[in-house]
């Protein structure tokens, strides 16, 4: 199969790493080649964080570049705006509607742009928005935003519900497993 590229973007501390672990697990279980790339260190301190997941018969570069992502999974609206140029013309953006002010906005040095989702749609991008924070609270833990979003993305990938369940069982510590299964199901059954 041709290489598929997924970009997961968010704010340091939002749990993007678990999302990429789940993806890595389902892909590896299928026996496909895969590369997952993320940057550790300073950017994890509340900065803008990016994870790349690429899979197919043979993957070379671990990074995704402008115009290359089949899917952009965004944990925060401003990050959707920041990384939209990485989406393929035929790609799909799945964006959480949560807004987290970056320090320049908090300190008054910059403005948080208004109506980001509408402006991205106006560019002709295929965008699906969801209030993943509310869904994760419904699942029982506001930190499960990452798994809710993975649940939404899973509808567009060729892996079964059983494969995803196995990934959650393998990647999540037992005491958080139930909440994450629930969060995943809420995401997977999410419709606009």
């Amino acid at each position: 199969m041709e290489t598929k590229s997924i970009m997961i973007v968010g704010v340091g501390g939002q749990g993007t790493l678990l999302a990429s672990r789940l993806l890595g697990y389902v892909i590896t279980s299928r026996g496909l080649d895969v590369k997952v790339s993320e940057v550790h260190g300073m950017s994890q301190r509340g900065g803008s964080v990016v994870t790349y997941v690429k899979f197919g018969d043979k993957v070379y570069s671990p990074v995704v570049e402008e115009g290359e992502a089949d899917f952009l999974l965004s944990f925060e609206l401003l990050e959707s705006a920041r990384w939209i140029s990485y989406l393929k013309p035929t790609g799909k953006l799945i964006s959480n509607t949560q807004q987290i002010d970056p320090m320049p906005v908090i300190s008054g040095a910059a403005q948080y742009p208004a109506e980001i989702a509408e402006k991205i749609a106006a560019l002709g991008c295929d965008i699906l928005t969801a209030d993943a924070l509310s869904l994760s609270e419904e699942a029982g833990n506001s930190k499960a935003v990452n798994v809710v979003l993975m649940g939404i993305l899973s509808n567009f990938l060729d892996f079964s519900a059983e494969e995803w369940d196995a990934a959650i069982d393998a990647c999540v510590p037992e005491k958080f497993r139930e909440v994450n299964h629930k969060a995943f199901r809420l995401g997977r059954s999410y419709r606009v």
Partner: peptide
């Protein structure tokens, strides 16, 4: 990156859509 190599050796530029207004940076913070 693969983009830079393709640009320099093949003259290929990616098709990309850019958000039309300034996106405030999100630097790391304490």
């Amino acid at each position: 990156s693969q983009k830079i190599v393709a640009e320099k050796l093949l003259g290929k530029k990616p098709e990309e859509k850019v958000f039309g207004e300034p996106v405030p940076p999100r630097p790391p913070v304490m």
